[in-house]
Design a binder for these strands. Structure first.
Lengths: 208, 208
DNA sequence: TATATCCGAAACTGCAACGTTTCGGATATA
DNA sequence: TATATCCGAAACGTTGCAGTTTCGGATATA
């Protein structure tokens, strides 16, 4: 199912000959994500991915049984590309933490994730496994960051303890997704800060 | 292009014989939207729509030149299915107006619109005309309602004049879209009110 | 009533992409 | 060095759907 399974040695494997080069797997998966983000799942073809990765189509089919498995693996392997829960910003204020978590790299990465999700939208309702992969690899990590930052602000008494942490932690991502998917505009730094200053902070009783 | 164009009389049309029955067009378009919302654009087939509408495939191709035109027409014709700008609620408070605008019918309609958008996600990045149709038929009408209700609240001095009306007017829809598309949960009345009371009203300085 | 056009059902064509397979050449292991 | 497996390229068969056409039957117009 996953690329990890493919690395497992089989019972009666002959030991002679060349071994498969798994160092190229990440390149192929990255190429798959690129094509997915640009064209969407249904219009994406294996040939596109192979061409992008400068690999033969046969090479891909040697490693993944189908287009669906390739995509699921690609999504699963994009987990935590930019998010480091163990090393969150700690500036002393909620606004400082939120703004510090918007590095230019994480903006690009977030944008990419949104486009990948858009490409998976039609497929996601059919395959529950894919929905789970998207949930744990794309959605949940980002929400966890915001949830932690909000909880810290509560703990230090900066914001009221009875505020709606769950909805608040999804606010910025929801607005970014809407802007990207529906309005077809980029969720750039300026926009993200306008959401923080215009919606999130006022909602917890802070004036930026 | 549109069903309206198809009703236009042609120059040298013979006057004899049976005329095309356009009273069934809305049924066919509604069937197209149903299939679109359920299966997505790429997996949707003309046969599905024909079967749903209990019509022949040839009948559909007599009226729309292609699958794309059928879908664009269907989206355009769902304009304002539930929204009546001339008859907005006016309860005297922002919360009253917002809650009053969430009738059970408009919840279902909003849910349907979100599923239609999800089905169009992959296609929407290819066809700019489709993006415009979605924008004016699905997205903008709902935002306009919220924008008006917020502006009224400003005019009567209920909320500060410098609040972020543009982002605020997209807040509920964004959260509903996120919940439906990503979390695969229904954006029911309880959820919508939790967004209003937990995010929107606090963000404009009101305590529900 | 006679006729022209409609209708739905179903068979058909064309095409695009999936997934498979084969090929010659390269390369790591024994 | 010998061999087994890798690699990328390219051809192939199959499938599924878009779009077309044909058919018998129904229906509104004259």
């Amino acid at each position: 199912m996953t690329s990890i399974d493919l690395t497992a040695p089989e019972a009666a494997t002959p030991k002679l000959g060349r071994k498969r080069d798994h160092t190229r797997d990440p390149e192929i998966l990255a190429a798959a994500l690129d094509v997915l983000a640009e064209t969407g799942y249904d219009r994406m073809t294996i040939d596109m991915v192979a061409a992008r990765a400068k690999a033969g189509k046969a090479t891909l089919y040697r490693r993944w049984a189908s287009k669906a498995e390739l995509v699921i693996d690609a999504v699963a392997c994009m987990k935590n590309a930019d998010i480091d829960m163990a090393n969150l910003p700690d500036t002393g204020t909620l606004r400082g933490d939120l703004v510090a978590s918007i590095k230019s790299h994480s903006i690009e990465d977030g944008d990419r994730k949104i486009h990948v999700m858009a490409g998976l939208m039609s497929m996601i309702s059919c395959d529950p496994g894919l929905a789970d992969a998207v949930q744990s690899a794309i959605v949940e990590p980002r929400a966890a960051v915001n949830r932690t930052l909000l909880q810290r602000a509560i703990d230090r008494g900066e914001i009221p303890a009875d505020c709606d942490v769950e909805n608040l932690s999804l606010l910025v991502t929801s607005m970014a997704m809407y802007r990207t998917m529906v309005q077809r505009k980029t969720a750039n730094r300026e926009f993200l800060i306008s959401v923080i200053d215009g919606l999130l902070l006022p909602a917890v009783g802070l004036r930026p």
